[in-house]
Design a protein around this nucleic acid. Structure first.
Length: 532
RNA sequence: CGGGAUGUGGCGCAGCUUGGUUAGCGCGCAGCGUUCGGGACGCUGAGGCCCCGGGUUCGAAUCCCGGCAUCCCGACCA
């Protein structure tokens, strides 16, 4: 429809129509940020690499950053986000408890050299983002700032016409503790999220958990018995060979925890959530074993590790392992499993938690109703960061007793260019776009048909004088072309001035989204539009 | 980074297997004419380093080698 044009993978030019939509989203965001008490700033996109070295994120962000050098060889990065720069800025400008709280935001281009840009604007390498950063004296202040931002975000997405859901999130690279994502519900979305139709629980798949299983009775089964299970790759093969089902097997997934061996124990039909292991062992560094780890630890019988493996210092079991079964598990010996393996008698986990990837139908952790999974586009994300950046970069304030403390920080992002794509995804039909009024590039699409220039010109002026943004199609083209183009561009209200109607003193109005049409008196178009 | 595919006027594509006239089609664009309320039609015309660099050959869009770019799946990441 001529809104954007691709320049390179992940880079887009915004043409006149697209730019107008982008500006409208930006203005909505600015209004809601200002209303929430934030102040707009504008930071440089090219930022000294030295700044990123101070928090170590030049390494952890690494290849995701576009880097460049000036003529003297000083390194810069194109901003993928701006925690470092805003924190040093605040450290230089605000020093007293009397200065806090403060909340600064900008609307600016961000750059991330994604491994695989895709889906047009949904995952671009250059994208317009609103990033806000709050600084408070303490956690109470942070919570208030976070809540205000959360509410403002809801306003923004509602005004943009998106169907969205706020979900509990994993913080990821940015760091910090509490965080929530705003997902625009869309089948093309890259992210799956879990939600409960019965209560307000919602979380992305990394953060989602199911209701825990209570402690059960000890099952009445015979002694643990070793069986020969050669050449049986995978859980299903073993289950079939032993004439049982995958959910009665236990997987023992090896992971590294601060250099020691950990095992994650889950039923054979479930996947381990690596993030959940990290949460369960909070404070410790966790990483699932890969091929290189098994190569370095020949003593591990890969594929045949049991929950009682002697070398493991941490045995973290999903609570569903409490179910009273005689489990089939690895025998800690290649080509062998054991049957009738019983919790408490044959193995004892050191830790319990919810560590499986949630699947549809699992019980909701807060109300036990069946959970559902949908896909969405992440259009916003709010974080409670704490003092990770303010300590590293020296953003301190002096309290009323003269003591210094790191400021308590939050950060809040909205993908503005991504919203444009998400709204287009939700608001279109076979003929083209059907913009919500708040985002449309124009309020009215005025179509002149035939020899009506005088009437159409004056109506155009009249509408503009009344404050409407009007797209005026006065081309010398056939009616069908004009109608089709008007539908394609998706301006919410079409006003058609034609010779037939003009003879009766009327123009036709068509609502793009619904297709509803009616006639308006030529001399009362503005008041009629105002009533709608 | 692994797998798959594609690069030919502004856009969408054919031609390549089997090398050989001025490289073709649709849309779009320009001029003229007829049309004119749901993507009209006729005539005329403009517009192409056939992704780039090597090579084979009398001759390469076509065959060979090496790059680059783009898209899709996955891994990864927000």
């Amino acid at each position: 429809a001529g809104y954007i044009r691709k320049v390179a993978s992940g880079f887009y030019s915004w043409l006149p129509l697209g730019n107008r939509v982008l500006q409208r989203v930006s203005e909505i965001v600015r209004e809601e940020m200002d209303r929430a008490g934030a102040q707009e700033v504008l930071l440089p996109i090219a930022q000294p690499l030295e700044l990123w070295e101070r928090t170590g994120r030049d390494q952890s962000y690494g290849p995701l950053m576009f880097k460049l050098e000036d003529r003297k060889g000083t390194g810069f990065a194109l901003s993928p986000t701006a925690e470092e720069l805003i924190t040093t800025t605040v450290a230089g400008e605000y020093t007293s408890y009397r200065d806090l709280p403060v909340n600064l935001y900008q609307v600016n281009w961000k750059y991330r050299d994604e491994l695989r840009p895709r889906f047009g604007l949904l995952r671009a390498r250059e994208f317009l983002m609103k990033d806000a950063y709050s600084f408070d004296r303490d956690l109470t202040g942070l919570q208030a700032a976070y809540d205000a931002m959360f509410d403002a975000y809801g306003q923004v997405f509602t005004r943009c016409g998106l169907t969205f859901r706020a979900v509990k999130a994993q913080s990821g690279e940015i760091g910090g503790d509490t965080s929530q994502e705003f997902m625009a519900v869309a089948a093309v979305g890259e992210d799956a999220f879990v939600w409960c139709a019965n209560c307000d629980y919602a979380a992305n798949t990394e953060a989602a958990t199911r209701q825990s299983t209570p402690e059960g009775q000890t099952p009445d089964v015979g002694p643990r018995t070793k069986v020969h299970t050669p050449d049986l790759p995978g859980i299903d093969g073993v289950a079939k060979h032993l004439d049982t089902s995958a959910d009665l097997l236990l997987k023992a997934i090896a992971f590294d925890v601060d250099g020691e061996l950990g095992l994650a124990i889950v039923p054979g039909d479930r996947e381990v959530n690596e993030f959940a292991i990290g949460r369960a062992l909070s404070g410790r560094s966790v990483r699932l074993y890969g091929d290189a780890d098994f190569a370095a630890h020949r003593e591990l019988p890969k594929g045949y590790i049991g929950p009682d493996f002697a070398g493991a210092t941490v045995v973290l079991a999903d609570t569903s392992v409490r179910a009273p079964h005689g489990w089939v598990t690895g025998a800690n010996e290649t080509d062998h499993h054991t049957i009738d393996t019983v919790l408490g008698r044959d193995f004892t986990p050191t830790h319990w938690d919810e560590i499986v990837v949630v699947e549809p139908g699992d019980p909701c952790p807060s109300c036990s109703a069946p959970l559902r999974i949908d896909r969405g586009i992440e259009v916003g994300h709010v974080f409670q960061l704490g003092t990770k950046y303010t300590e590293a970069l020296g953003a301190l304030y002096t309290d009323d007793a003269g003591a210094q403390h790191p400021m308590v920080m939050g950060c809040y992002g909205i993908g503005i260019s991504r919203i444009v794509a998400a709204v287009a995804e939700e608001h279109h039909d076979d003929n083209g776009l059907t913009w919500p009024a708040a985002l449309a590039p124009y309020d009215v699409h005025l179509v002149a048909l035939g020899d009506v220039a005088q009437a159409a010109d004056s109506l155009y002026s009249e509408l503009q004088a009344a404050g409407y943004a009007v797209l005026y199609d006065d081309r010398d083209a056939r009616p069908g072309v004009k109608f089709a183009d008007a539908d394609l561009l998706g301006v919410p209200v079409q006003v058609v001035v034609g010779t037939k109607g003009l003879a009766r003193g009327v123009v036709e109005r068509k609502m793009r989204a619904t297709g509803d049409r009616d006639e308006l008196p030529l001399d009362a178009v503005v008041p009629a539009l105002a009533r709608a």
